[in-house]
Design a protein around this nucleic acid. Structure first.
Lengths: 304, 304
DNA sequence: TTAAATAATGCTCAGATTTAGCATAAGTCG
DNA sequence: CGACTTATGCTAAATCTGAGCATTATTTAA
């Protein structure tokens, strides 16, 4: 039995959520768990930090799975232990590192910052409707559609940004993502959705990581791991929006951040472009402990 | 490399939260991951169901760890994958199964149903205070006490029932639990707290499971996996209270349950003892899907 | 038979939180 | 200077929560 580590390594650059990939964007970075490390997490940290030249601010285990399919030999399992980790894309010199991709490249339907993405009404809803109709009896048909509608915020249902994994799994079941097809099995291409696929079950792991992060930012101050030392509240908000895939109400966002005393003013203001200059803030790392224990909230009300 | 499965198997019987143990209550049930199963979860399910003669309603992975310490040979790791699973203690005939223990036996300080347990003021607070004082400088001392106070709800701090793991780890660091001591290392016994220890890191795993479950019942309808087919709202409430380790406000509890349409009346009433008979309810399994997707809430306000 | 005692339920209220906007201030740009 | 952009202050309304009062239905003890 062998153990692999797989990482969903997230950064937010220029208001876009990014993940580190390998294999021309078809895989998540992965490596064997080498026994010369004390623990799994230590092993992961060492390995990722060597690749990115950035300390990992936040690391969290996602899920462990063992799939026989993934191994050549029958009866042989590879155990994969997946992690979510937060970092920054650019190194100290601001140089771009290769391999980073926008995560909405893999999940175009997850980005609701500009409202419901066209792909949902144009492609996903019809596909899921067709899938619903394939069910044997009318009860199963309506159950399928119910599920589809709730998961994707169709009909009267609200969009819930945390259901990234459920949505992916639904699309998988409905066989409208290429991963659901075996090797060279039919002309899938025609019926496929936009959104890049990945090898193995890496897109599923990515979905798990996205879901976890979207849930986490609501009650733990992890966003700050993605920010540079000083930032404006708008930058902070845009980072949250990038991750959550939805717009936030600006005034309420600010109120909550300041109310919880998560940040302090640096005294500086932004030098740049148009509009009134924004005050700069820094994260009060000293509240880390309290908040990590007590919990905190980020507002996720809709915007506009 | 070898993989073990460890299960925190929870039931609530007679208003008490119970866990399945082995080795005279010194260990959690564990077994090797056998390769003749498709997945980890399938393997765990099969194995536990054989032991308990109960289908597992709810299974969730907790954490995977690899500790060199746990293995004899240097450089050899055993990977342990821990799970939380919910079931019922009694089999169909109502016969008691061996090995079940009250979980507060291992964590007496976690049961606040009758208010703050005496052990906190009498033993834990003094021990943690002493530990704080051992720190080198005054900043570290006050940081230690701050942490202790927040974690255990001392001073002005609120008790947070979800911090089971943090509390255990704090006690471990302060070396007031026997697991923190090496084999036969000194007369620990004198300074030890009430609360049964476990072998390996099983008490830590149990703490992880308790914490996860306490968090989960607040937003997923998992309590129902622990109930029998029909139940009164008081029984339901007492089950939640048993898990959460705190009392709830009865009227508010009912309001939330009914408001969310999680249950439906069976038309029956309880036959038993004192007081006005209670209506019996059953869980509306058909809302399982919606709720599993949409989330739901259990109230956890204090009672009295 | 009646007075506790025990539970179940119905309702109300005040305070806190959340959502959605309005209004204004302080800059940049053409 | 006027249009435009972004930052910020404030508030009203709706909802959610925590607490507690009051009443009803049964069992048990006096």
């Amino acid at each position: 039995m062998q153990a692999d580590l797989v990482a969903v390594l997230v950064a937010v650059t220029g208001g876009q959520p990014r993940i580190l990939t390998t294999g021309s964007g078809r895989a998540l970075p992965a490596g064997p768990f080498t026994s010369n490390h004390r623990s799994l997490q230590a092993s992961l940290r060492a390995w990722v930090e060597k690749q990115t030249h950035h300390p990992l601010g936040f690391v969290e285990q996602l899920y462990t799975f063992a799939d026989r399919e993934r191994s050549q030999q029958l009866g042989m399992h590879v155990i994969s232990i997946s992690y979510l980790a937060l970092t920054q894309e650019l190194d100290e010199t601001g140089a771009a590192q290769p391999g980073w991709q926008d995560w909405y490249r893999y999940f175009p339907w997850e980005d609701w910052r500009e409202g419901m993405p066209g792909v949902i009404a144009e492609r996903i809803a019809p596909a899921l409707h067709a899938w619903s109709e394939q069910a044997s009896d009318s009860v199963a048909r309506s159950a399928r559609w119910q599920r589809a509608a709730m998961t994707f915020g169709l009909d009267e249902h609200e969009w819930n940004e945390e259901l990234v994994l459920q949505r992916y799994e639904l699309l998988f079941e409905a066989a409208v993502v290429p991963e659901a097809w075996g090797e060279g099995e039919g002309d899938a291409a025609a019926s496929l959705l936009p959104g890049a696929a990945m090898g193995n079950d890496h897109r599923r792991i990515l979905a798990t990581g996205m879901a976890r992060l979207r849930a986490k930012i609501k009650y733990r101050p992890v966003v700050f791991e993605l920010m540079s030392e000083e930032f404006s509240l708008l930058q902070l908000q845009q980072t949250v929006e990038a991750l959550a895939g939805r717009g936030l109400h600006k005034q309420n966002f600010r109120r909550l951040i300041e109310q919880q005393a998560l940040v302090e003013e640096t005294g500086q203001v932004t030098a740049v472009g148009a509009g009134r200059p924004a005050k700069l803030f820094r994260f009060r790392r000293n509240v880390m402990l309290e908040r990590a224990i007590a919990g905190n909230k980020l507002p996720l009300a809709r915007s506009h």
